[in-house]
C-alpha cells in the first residue's frame, strides 16, 4: 500500500509546480531595475546646458550639501506628473539638479515654461551617458547625493505626494 501511494508522488509534484506557475502568473512583475551604485561616489561627468536659461551640470556641482539628482526628459509623460512634487521639494529648500535625457533645448524650455522649473542646473545627456554611468534605467528617476558626492538613495518612477517625506528624510540622513 505504501508503495502504491508513492506512485502518486510525481503527479503531486507536477501539480504543485503547475499550481505555482499559475499563481505566479497572477502576481505583479517587478519592473524596476535598481541601481547598484548606491553607496558609490558619483562618476565624473560634465554635461553642457540643456537650454539657454540654466547652466549645465557636473559632478563638482554636488559638493557642499545634499542635493537631488533628477533624471528626466521633456518627452516623458510621468515627468509631468512629478513636476508639482519637485516644486514642493524646492519650496522646502531642496536643491534639485536635473539631467535631461535625449532632449532638445527648445523642448526643455517649453516643458519648464508649462510645468514650472524646480531646477538650479540642467545638464543635457544626449546619449544617456551619465544615466548609464549611475545605473539608472529609465525616466524619471531621482537620486539623493550627499555633500561628498556619494549616491545615497534612488527613487524609481515619478515622485508622488506620498514620496516627498521619504525623500526629505533621505536628504536629512545624507547631511
Amino acid at each position: 500500500m505504501g508503495k502504491r501511494l508513492w506512485l502518486w508522488a510525481p503527479l503531486a509534484l507536477f501539480a504543485f509546480f503547475a499550481g505555482l506557475a499559475g499563481y505566479m502568473l497572477t502576481q505583479d512583475k517587478d519592473e524596476f531595475v535598481e541601481s547598484e551604485m548606491i553607496g558609490q561616489p558619483l562618476p565624473d561627468f560634465a554635461l553642457p546646458a540643456a537650454f539657454d536659461g540654466l547652466p549645465g551640470a557636473s559632478k563638482a556641482d554636488f559638493a557642499g550639501s545634499p542635493k537631488l539628482l533628477n533624471i528626466w526628459a521633456s518627452w516623458c509623460l510621468p515627468c509631468i506628473a512629478e513636476a508639482p512634487q519637485l516644486e514642493a521639494l524646492k519650496a522646502q529648500g531642496v536643491e534639485i539638479i536635473g539631467i535631461a535625457i535625449r532632449d532638445r533645448p527648445a523642448d526643455v524650455a517649453n516643458f519648464l515654461g508649462r510645468y514650472g522649473n524646480p531646477y538650479s542646473r540642467i545638464g543635457s545627456d544626449r546619449i544617456s551617458e551619465v544615466q548609464l554611468a549611475i545605473g539608472s534605467s529609465g525616466v524619471p528617476e531621482t537620486f539623493v547625493i550627499d555633500a561628498k558626492g556619494v549616491i545615497r538613495y534612488q527613487h524609481i518612477g515619478d515622485i508622488r505626494e506620498s514620496d516627498v517625506p521619504k525623500l526629505l528624510a533621505e536628504l536629512e540622513k545624507a547631511q
Binding site: E129, Q131, L132, S137
Partner: peptide
C-alpha cells in the same frame, strides 16, 4: 536591454538600447 527586458541590446530598437550599443 533594460527597457524592453526580454531582448538583448543587439535586438532592441529602444533608444536606450541604442545608447548602450554606443557605449
Amino acid at each position: 536591454c533594460l527597457k524592453c527586458q526580454s531582448q538583448s541590446i543587439a535586438d532592441s530598437d529602444a533608444p536606450m538600447a541604442g545608447d548602450m550599443r554606443h557605449q
